[in-house]
């Protein structure tokens, strides 16, 4: 039963939901239509998916770029949550005045915008021979104040007493992290992992600077190239956009709760 005083709310929500979903629905239909049909304003699914697919494969290194994006994003996610969780764990559970002061300094890195560091970082990466490698892609993005803070805040709920018990039982300091901290903090790892993966998959400015070899390009770069041509085939373009969106959409639908927690991060 719908309450009458909520009717304006429902109408508003339906309109906003429609506007939110429609561009994505349209993108999917366009991927199955010819560019002429798309321009004519066709908004239902067509029968030209295979044709668009073969054009996309002919013009672009689709599987290579998908593979690159997966490899870079997964590598960045695993390394980032390991490095940042270790730091958050160390800052919270082994804290003393010196570490608290260091943490305050690290937070200052939040002020540094990517566009301000890209030239020095580019020089650094090319000197180290990291251009067009997974290292060049992920090194600047592994350690972030956001993730360290997220793990630090959430470590507050980690029971300190069991650490003492574990030490008495003879577990090493790293053993406590590996065998006790990580399993207990599963939820935080999931949220941090989802948000890091999304950010890595969607990264565009930095990869454009450092991954200049076509063999090393990522999906956002591939679809940007598709749109940069003189005459754009909208069916093929939207199919590329669809490929670029499938992994993040799956993550969104399967892990929506973790994604929302990852966005809000350390904010409680």
């Amino acid at each position: 039963m719908v309450q009458r005083r909520l009717i304006p709310s429902y109408i508003f929500l339906i309109i906003v939901s429609f506007i939110s979903v429609f561009p994505l629905y349209w993108m999917m239909t366009a991927a199955t239509n010819t560019t002429v049909d798309v321009a004519r304003g066709k908004i239902i699914f067509g029968s030209h998916l295979a044709e668009n697919m073969s054009k996309l494969l002919a013009g672009q290194n689709l599987w290579g770029s998908m593979g690159n994006s997966f490899l870079y994003s997964l590598a960045q996610t695993l390394v980032a949550i390991f490095v940042c969780s270790l730091a958050g764990y160390g800052f919270e559970l082994y804290h003393d005045n010196a570490k608290d002061r260091l943490f305050a300094i690290l937070l200052l890195a939040m002020m540094v915008p990517g566009v301000a560091t890209m030239i020095p970082l580019f020089k650094m990466m090319s000197k180290m021979g990291f251009l067009n490698t997974v290292w060049g892609f992920m090194l600047p993005a592994i350690s972030t104040p956001f993730l360290i803070m997220m793990f630090r805040q959430n470590s507050r709920s980690f029971p300190v007493d069991i650490m003492e018990a574990a030490r008495i039982d003879g577990l090493s300091e790293f053993g406590i992290y590996w065998r006790m901290y990580m399993p207990v903090m599963k939820a935080t790892y999931a949220a941090a992992g989802v948000i890091t993966f999304m950010n890595a998959w969607n990264a565009y400015l930095w990869p454009r600077v450092v991954m200049t070899d076509p063999k090393a390009q990522t999906m956002p770069m591939l679809i940007a190239n598709l749109a940069a041509g003189y005459s754009v085939d909208y069916g093929v373009l939207m199919l590329g956009v669809l490929f670029c969106s499938i992994p993040t959409m799956i993550v969104f639908f399967v892990l929506q709760k973790q994604f929302a927690e990852g966005i809000t991060g350390s904010v409680k």
Partner: peptide
């Protein structure tokens, strides 16, 4: 409704720019 309103966040910045461009 929450999922619908939240859904645009599942697209990359390049993707949605190209969707709106089209």
């Amino acid at each position: 409704f929450r999922t619908c309103v939240f859904l645009p966040c599942a697209t990359s910045l390049v993707s949605y720019s190209l969707i709106f461009k089209s």
